[in-house]
């Protein structure tokens, strides 16, 4: 299953947020979307997953989702979006309850995804007892439970401290190496983008348009050893982004 964005336009009131976005999102790879703050990255992700309706243009899904897929387009949110009144296990079970599985089948899936995210021993904990990094791992487990075709990640590491971010970034690389999922990863952090992206899409400041598309051919699990190469990509992106970011920074919010 692949996604194609064709001529996406979107705005709020009379503020134009996205203008003419054309983009192909292939299967089995991670596309990172970066851009200055307020450029509509997160809006774009909400449009891709159908949480918002574009003013013009469309998001087209080609090919069928893989068999056994319960929720083809699955989000991982910046604020984790865990239900505080449910335990780790309950939060994962939430997304399975509407699919009419038996008790044993549900328990099997829950056990499996908790094991894959190394959360098995924390299954009875409530979100308030967990650190930010653990909460995000619960959100990853919940996303894996519905075997998505695409993971749509909205700045999943931005609410975490630098060390936790580093650990979770490695987790995501491991996860991709094992599962080869397709992903769209929105971030303002260029380092994360060059670590995780097979393709990095740079958006201009508002109204967001595709400014540049960068392909990074290094395999994800080999990137840790190629720091200089990644750094070159990062600094090239920063050169492109810098003026846009500065201009976006001095803009009035409701201007």
């Amino acid at each position: 299953m692949e996604l194609r964005l064709a001529g996406l336009h979107h705005g709020y009131g009379n503020i134009e947020v996205l203008r003419g976005i054309d983009l192909d999102i292939p299967a089995g790879r991670i596309v990172c979307i970066v851009g200055p703050s307020g450029c509509g990255k997160s809006t774009l992700l909400r449009l891709i997953g159908g949480l918002e309706r574009p003013e013009r243009g469309e998001v087209v899904q080609t090919g069928a989702p893989p068999p056994g897929c319960l929720n083809p387009l699955t989000y991982i949110f910046q604020d984790f979006a865990l239900l505080p009144w449910r335990t780790v296990e309950g939060n994962v079970r939430l997304v399975l309850e509407d699919h009419g599985f038996g008790r044993a089948e549900t328990a099997g899936i829950v056990d499996d995804v908790l094991a894959r995210t190394r959360l098995s021993e924390f299954r009875a904990a409530f979100p308030r007892q967990l650190s930010g990094g653990m909460k995000q791992r619960v959100a990853v487990a919940r996303a894996l439970a519905v075997s998505p075709a695409f993971l749509l990640m909205d700045e999943p590491l931005s609410a975490l401290d630098a060390q936790t971010r580093e650990l979770l970034l490695d987790d995501l690389v491991d996860l991709w190496t094992r599962e080869r999922f397709s992903g769209v990863y929105v971030t303002h952090n260029l380092r994360e983008a060059v670590r995780l992206g097979h393709r990095v899409v740079l958006l201009s400041r508002r109204p967001g348009t595709v400014r540049e598309i960068l392909e990074i051919d290094l395999p994800l699990d080999a990137r840790a050893g190629h720091a200089p190469e990644l750094e070159a990509h990062r600094s090239r992106l920063w050169q492109l982004l810098r003026d846009e970011a500065h201009a976006a920074d001095v803009e009035l919010v409701d201007g």
Partner: peptide
């Protein structure tokens, strides 16, 4: 509202 969006994004009824 983010929790409600989450529910919708997972296709909850």
């Amino acid at each position: 509202r983010n929790l409600i969006r989450m529910g919708q994004s997972f296709g909850l009824s």
